[in-house]
Design a protein around this nucleic acid. Structure first.
Length: 476
RNA sequence: GUCCCCUUCGUCUAGAGGCCUAGGACAUAUCCCUUUCACGGAUACGACACGGGUUCGAAUCCCGUAGGGGACGCCA
């Protein structure tokens, strides 16, 4: 049997990070089995579905490298088919028209709750003659759910789950306006699309028993189910606004690489021995539904950062430069862009996110004539020794014939040995402050070598001027 | 309220009755490396929710308890 899976988001908002993982699991499972992976947009809620959300969902799925094997199906285009099946069910005596109004149903639920019972429909119209129906009420179609006995689902993740049929009510298939409910549309579409395996969040586990009733009433094959646990926030509660990011797109904006997000997400609730770092293609080779855990897992940004740092180190310098440039929001002059790319090896070894990378790369894009120094850099430049160091540095470096990294370091060490008792920091720190405007940077000899002799000297000169301006205020 | 599901270090997890003195990863701490901050390397800290069974033997099987989550819509 060729397996067919689907990812079925509803376009009422962004792609949730949990949805992204569900998609990833479906994708990996399908790749592993050599089947077909489909996407279905569940846009039957016309009030809340938007085309912007549809675009955002596809953008984020593409970002993660998840693409379907066929064109996406839009559920809203299939309403006629959903209605047809619902009426067929009525004709077969498996479903019936119900003339209760939403108000009556609301009251029914409240009464049941007041009596301490489950808020369910009381099957008023199940065996009543439609001829007695009130005028002017557009009926809904309800399924005839089994009244006693029990139902069983052999879930690939959760195991054997049994529910007493008395817990299930005659839920609605087709609304008064003729549109299908989620419960009905899902079944009809899953059947028509030939879905063999439904892999989805375990918030749907209860629904499975209802959907199974429809499959069986139509005499259709029931797919295999795998209900994966939800992702929770760091505090263990359901992921919500107060936890920060929930949308896959937000993770992109926070500077996480797609391969890092995919790797991290795949590792949440699924494992293959002790493997931690892997591509989704690699995961697909290993992926089995039975290796998915049953319990929910929490989002841990520290681990995500660790994984992200790994992929940043592995990423192509040109690509990272593009990311940095995009985040800076300005088109860089080619000279600066070249510095950025040349300095990227040192920069990327230190960054856990693209945001941090961008921040730390900023000094490459500054202008010598217009430097700014952060508080610590200012303190470093104001130090008494720094003034001497900078003059020695300027003189030595302007006369340095070889502008290679080691040559620059050698020159600095020589000054340190001769003037500062071998304390390289006395030279390196003012140099760093002057060249980068910060006391924190990658290897400063590599950085100055990358910037070139002229730019380095220009920045030193600029710092010297700044120091003179400051000195005037301080000493007198 | 009713039903369903879940429970191994702080977090993600390995674990299929003896391989478990419970392994790995992140985080944390310390040390090494070092011109800064990182990176990298090393070491340390740290868990089978609780209580009963079954068994020669239980993290693993069974039953309770507690805690957590989910579902009960003419939402999806």
């Amino acid at each position: 049997m060729t397996i067919v899976t689907r990812f079925a988001p509803s376009p009422t908002g962004y792609l949730h990070i949990g949805g992204a993982r569900t998609a990833l699991f479906n994708w990996c499972f399908t790749r592993h089995k050599g089947g077909k992976f489909l996407i279905r947009i569940e846009d039957t809620d016309k009030e809340r579905s938007t085309s912007e959300a549809v675009d955002a969902i596809f953008r984020d799925l593409n970002w993660l490298g998840i693409t379907a094997d066929e064109d996406p199906i839009f559920q809203s285009t299939r309403e006629a088919r959903h209605a047809e099946v619902a009426r067929e069910l009525v004709a077969k005596g498996k479903a019936y028209y119900c003339y209760c109004t939403p108000e009556e149903l609301e009251k029914m639920r409240e009464d049941a709750k007041a009596k301490g019972q489950s808020p369910r429909y009381n099957r008023y119209w199940r065996d009543r003659d439609p001829a007695t129906a009130p005028e002017g009420v557009k009926p809904v179609i309800r399924i005839k759910a089994p009244i006693d006995g029990e139902s069983v689902v052999e879930d690939q993740v959760q195991g054997r789950v049994v529910v007493q049929n008395k817990e299930l009510d005659d839920f609605i298939l087709l609304r008064g306006d003729g549109s299908p409910t989620y419960m009905h549309a899902v079944v009809v579409d899953d059947h028509d699309m030939g879905i063999t395996h439904v892999v989805r969040g375990d918030d749907h586990l209860n629904n499975t028993f209802r959907q199974k009733i429809i499959f069986e009433a139509m005499g259709w094959d029931v797919p295999t189910f795998a209900h994966i646990p939800l992702i929770h926030g760091p505090d263990g509660a359901k992921l919500s606004k107060r936890h920060g990011a929930q949308a896959a797109g937000e993770f992109r904006e926070m500077g996480y690489l797609p391969e890092a997000v995919a790797n991290y997400l795949l590792r949440l609730g699924w494992s293959h021995g002790d493997d931690e770092i892997f591509t989704k293609e690699q995961a697909a080779q290993w992926f089995e539904l039975t290796d998915i855990n049953k319990g929910p897992s929490r989002l841990d940004y520290k681990k995500l950062e660790f994984v992200n740092a790994h992929y940043i180190k592995a990423a192509d310098n040109e690509r990272l430069a593009n990311e940095v440039e995009a985040r800076m929001g300005t088109k860089l002059a080619s000279e600066k862009r070249n510095w950025l790319i040349a300095g990227m090896n040192d920069l990327k070894a230190r960054a856990v996110s693209l945001l941090q990378l961008t921040k730390e790369a900023a000094f490459y894009t500054k202008d010598a004539a217009n430097m700014d120094y952060d508080d610590k850099a200012q303190a470093t430049l104001k130090d008494h020794d720094a003034h001497h160091a900078m003059h020695f540095l300027y003189d030595t470096l302007s006369a340095l014939p070889d502008w290679g990294r080691d040559s620059i370091e050698g020159a600095c060490k020589k000054i340190a040995d001769e003037k500062f008792e071998g304390k390289l920091g006395k030279i390196a720190m003012p140099l760093r402050a002057a060249v980068t405007g910060s006391t924190v940077s990658p290897d400063i000899f590599n950085a100055t070598s990358t910037l070139g002799q002229k730019e380095t000297l220009d920045r030193l000169k600029s710092a010297l001027h700044w120091m003179h301006d400051q000195g005037g205020h301080h000493h007198h």
